[in-house]
Design a binder for these strands. Structure first.
Lengths: 217, 217
DNA sequence: CACGCAATGTAAGCGCCGACAACATAGAGG
DNA sequence: CCTCTATGTTGTCGGCGCTTACATTGCGTG
């Protein structure tokens, strides 16, 4: 009956939607422009009319992920709650977001998209906004500190959260869980560590040790 | 003169050495068995006589990386020093190791090799030993705690360290460094956070917040 | 010493991929 | 109506992982 028209109509958004689904579930590595085009019933060259290359499509998907985070952080900041609880809530959000969309999480926080020089233009605004809001959340939890101290706290907090997700995703914690420690226990410990950083001097350490590197063979 | 002999002589080790160099510098994604074979002057199929597939080669490279870590941890444990200082030294080792071999670090801590079921057999022994030694380092820094508490501390410590490296490698901290915060400052803050975890109750937190997920669209 | 067999290497080919160039179609605006 | 541009197609190139069938070598054993 309705034979497929020559023009798709909204191929660009169709590509974004379908591709985001693939990335969320199976990660950026699993995304193939060819199979994507085939799934949507267009030729393999069609996607290149809308995205310069594969990375350009991935950049837009990552950007949409950062926009999700921006919306969530903004909502957290708009609610009136204790600063430490807000950090715990934010950390909980990270964990849930990554659990639901492991591949998208990896694209956002482990890919080198943002390390390019220059990074994809579409990625910069949402990534920057998410930085700023995260720092604001940390600032409100540890008020009255210097800007550098706040930044150091923010970096430590996000490092702990992302590192946990990276390592769990990489299967590095499987040996730890043969004991009595459940996944929920570990998540609770991470949230506690992020929310209850010691209130003292995050930048007070000198160089405790020289950058020696034994075993570097 | 010496025309290339039919048999390479030590192709397996040559593959490992050359491949490890590529992985250390440019990451596992950059490793191509074809170009590797060409560089070594053998045919494209030759590597498959020594490794079942690309992942098998990568697994051996990752294993050698974990063995580096095991050797370093053992050396740290053999020296007589304050427990917190040893944690700081261990963290410093992570940072340096990853700085010198960014691609190998990613293969070890971000790839899903260990998440497979089952993981590559060559990878399990060195990975397990590195777990155990790391836990031992943490235990000596926070003696007298329950096994679960020690594990939670270890997980938090390595999460913070690896997360920092992942995020810096992904370019996520570039916006933070436009201010007065240098890279060395940030590293010092990470080391301080890992070494000076609050001594109190790493597992004492209940469920501070429900797993709500605003903005999950 | 010779021989046969396992270890190790080669050549060719499959199917997948990203990307580009040349061509086809359709719809919007003069 | 007609052209111009946006959009989609086909064909092609080079690269990849991996497999199959075949070639060479050298070691262990009769």
């Amino acid at each position: 009956m309705d034979k497929t028209p020559y023009h798709h109509g909204d191929l660009r958004n169709a590509l974004l939607d379908t591709a985001r689904g693939v990335v969320e579930r199976d990660g950026a590595e699993a995304l193939s422009l060819r199979s994507l085009a085939e799934d949507l019933g267009v030729s393999r060259a069609a996607p290149y009319r809308h995205f310069a290359d594969r990375d350009a499509l991935l950049a837009e998907i990552a950007a949409s992920g950062f926009e999700d985070h921006v919306a969530a952080y903004q909502a957290f900041l708009d609610t009136d709650m204790d600063g430490r609880d807000r950090i715990a809530l934010t950390t909980r959000f990270y964990l849930d977001y990554a659990a639901r969309r492991p591949g998208l999480h990896r694209l956002m926080f482990e890919s080198d998209l943002l390390a390019r020089t220059p990074p994809p233009a579409v990625l910069i605004p949402p990534a920057d906004r998410s930085y700023r809001l995260l720092v604001e959340i940390v600032r409100q939890a540890f008020p009255g500190e210097s800007e550098d101290a706040t930044l150091a706290r923010a970096i430590t907090a996000i490092s702990t959260t992302i590192g946990f997700l990276t390592l769990r995703g990489a299967g590095r914690f499987k040996p730890f869980m043969r004991g009595g420690l459940s996944d929920a226990d570990i998540e609770a410990a991470i949230i506690a560590a992020v929310s209850n950083q010691s209130a003292a001097a995050p930048l007070a350490v000198g160089s405790i040790c020289a950058p020696s590197t034994p075993g570097s063979q």
